[in-house]
């Protein structure tokens, strides 16, 4: 196996393991559009990276965090539904990012790479950041896990039973923002939430407990990464979309079983 394929596999598997449990919360709390919004806003993070001449990952992480906090605050207004607000921010950020990149004519940015991901281009440092960061993110998730599960049943009930609901909600938004930032390199802006939502949705049918579903989503995600990269190698197709196609195929297979 070529080394760049080994790097891609190592990075993709690390991401799949982290995406599993977080993807479950995206499904349970109906945050898929929230994930998309973060991903679209991340293009502005790339612009920020170019403009300030700093690492793209830092720019993306900063912008995702800012958007997550902004959305958390905006949920307090009730005039417009939250998916309307997400729609405005999501497409506003994507369009602004595309316009800004077009204006920076000297910037050498591989736009297709950002939109669709380029896992074959990641280095060992990226792999190390993915695994190290992933462990930290999962550890943080484990701390607020009981509260988050209680909140999915009912937020008022969780609060009455002594859970710190507001804090856990904010922690989840920030963690999901960081996962989205990490996932961008692998599957790209347009397909980031696919890696969160599809394995978790596939795992639902075979799960009896929330924890079971989280672990199973990681395993299914890892399988999709392996299959997708193999397909990408064999048929010379783009890596990010190939991984998502593999995930969708696994989902369809799972639905065929009664």
């Amino acid at each position: 196996m070529d080394e760049f394929l080994a790097r891609a596999l190592a990075g993709g598997l690390g991401l799949a393991l982290v995406a599993g449990p977080f993807g479950c919360f995206v499904v349970w709390r109906r945050m898929a559009y929230f994930g998309d919004t973060l991903a679209h806003a991340a293009l502005l993070g790339v612009v920020l990276g170019v403009a300030l001449d700093m690492d793209f990952t830092i720019g993306i992480a900063l912008l995702s965090l800012a958007v997550a906090l902004l959305l958390g605050l905006m949920q307090r207004q009730r005039q417009l539904a939250s998916d309307t607000m997400l729609g405005i921010i999501s497409h506003g950020a994507l369009a602004t990012g595309l316009v800004a990149l077009a204006l920076m004519q000297d910037a050498r940015v591989n736009l297709m790479g950002w939109l669709l991901g380029d896992i074959l281009a990641i280095g060992w440092t990226d792999v190390a950041v993915l695994w190290g960061g992933g462990v930290v993110l999962l550890a943080a998730l484990a701390v607020v896990w009981p509260t988050l599960v209680a909140m999915i049943v009912d937020e008022d009930l969780a609060a009455v039973e002594g859970h710190a609901v507001a804090r856990a909600r904010m922690v989840l938004m920030v963690l999901v923002a960081l996962v989205v930032a990490a996932a961008m390199k692998v599957v790209g802006i347009l397909l980031v939430t696919a890696l969160l939502v599809i394995p978790a949705a596939t795992a639902r049918k075979f799960s009896r407990t929330p924890e079971h579903m989280a672990v199973l989503a990681s395993v299914i995600g890892a399988l999709a990464v392996a299959l997708g990269l193999a397909g990408s190698w064999r048929f010379d197709t783009p890596s990010g979309p190939s991984v998502v196609v593999a995930a969708v195929a696994l989902f369809v297979l799972s639905q065929a079983r009664r």
Partner: peptide, 13 residues
């Protein structure tokens, strides 16, 4: 609470 709708995507015994 008055009405509880448990998210069907959450496996919960």
């Amino acid at each position: 609470p008055q009405r509880l709708t448990v998210e069907p995507a959450l496996p919960l015994s």
